[in-house]
Amino acid sequence: MSWVKENCVSFFQLFCIKVVKSGRIPQHIAFIMDGNRRFAKKNSVKTSVGHHKGFDKLSETLKWCLDLGVPEVTVYAFSIENFKRSDEEVSALMDLARDKFKRLLDEIDLINEWGVRLHIAGRLSLLPDDLRSLVSQAMLATKHNNILQLNIAYAYTGRDEISRAASHIIDGVQNNELTADDIDENLVSQTLDLGEAELLVRTSGEVRLSDFMLWQVSRTVLYFSDVLWPEFTIWNLLAAIIHFQRHAPPLLPEIENSRSKQEFLDKLENKRWKNLQSLVSY
C-alpha cells in the first residue's frame, strides 16, 4: 500500500472532519502505534501481517491528518528496545521498512504532490547500512515539502534523544560556538530530533510513554485509547481531537533565539543534512 491512502474518506467522514476542523486543531500529533501483534494474535495471523496492517493504518491516518490540516505527525515505529525482540521479528520489521522506503522513493512524485516531508528520528547508526541509505534518500528527496511533516521515530528512545542532544550542545560549547550560559530549556528543545507534540495518542489500552518523546510531552494532552492500532478509525481520531479541544492548555508564545544560539542551530542542521548525504551511498 502507498504512504498516503487515497479514497479512504467517505463524504460523511469528510463532512465530520470539516466540522471538527472549525475548532482548534493540534499542530503536532504523536502516535504510539501499539497493538499490531495483539491484532495478529486475535485474528490468528502471522505477526508480520499485523505489522503490515499497522502500516496500512498509518497511511490512512496520514490522509485523515492531511484532511484535518494537521501540519506535523510523529509516529513511534521502532524503539531501540525493540532490537531485543526475536531475530525473526526484527528482520521482518527491517524488511518491512526497506520495502516501504523503496516504495516511497518509487512514488516520490506522488509524495511531493501531497507535500509530505519525511524525517526519521533516532540513532540511525544502529540501522543496517542499506536501510540507513534508504531513509537518508527519503529525507533528502522530501526535504522541500511543507504541507505535512511526518516524523518516524525509528531506532529511537526519548532518553537516547536527550543524550544525543546533550552531546551536540556540549560539543558546541567545546567548539566555542556556544557558551555554557547559552544552554537553556529552549536550546535543548530545539536540538532534539522531535518538536513538542500537542496531542499524543496511544492505542491498545497501554497507559505509559514507553520512552517516547519524554522531553516533549510536558504540555501535551495524553490520550489513551483501548482500540488496537490496526483497528483505529477516523472516529477514534476525531474523539481524540474533541478531547484535545476540550482540555488543551493554551499556546505559549515562541521565544526568539539569540544570534549565537541560532547560528549554532543552523550549523547543526547543516551538519545533519551533510551527514545524510554521506549516508546515501554506503
Partner: peptide, 20 residues
C-alpha cells in the same frame, strides 16, 4: 480529572511510568 498530562514531571524518570 479528565486531562492526562505530565506537566513536566521529571522527563528522564517517567519512561515506563503508568498513568492511571
Amino acid at each position: 480529572g479528565p486531562l492526562c498530562c505530565s506537566y513536566g514531571l521529571m522527563p528522564w524518570q517517567i519512561r515506563l511510568t503508568e498513568f492511571i
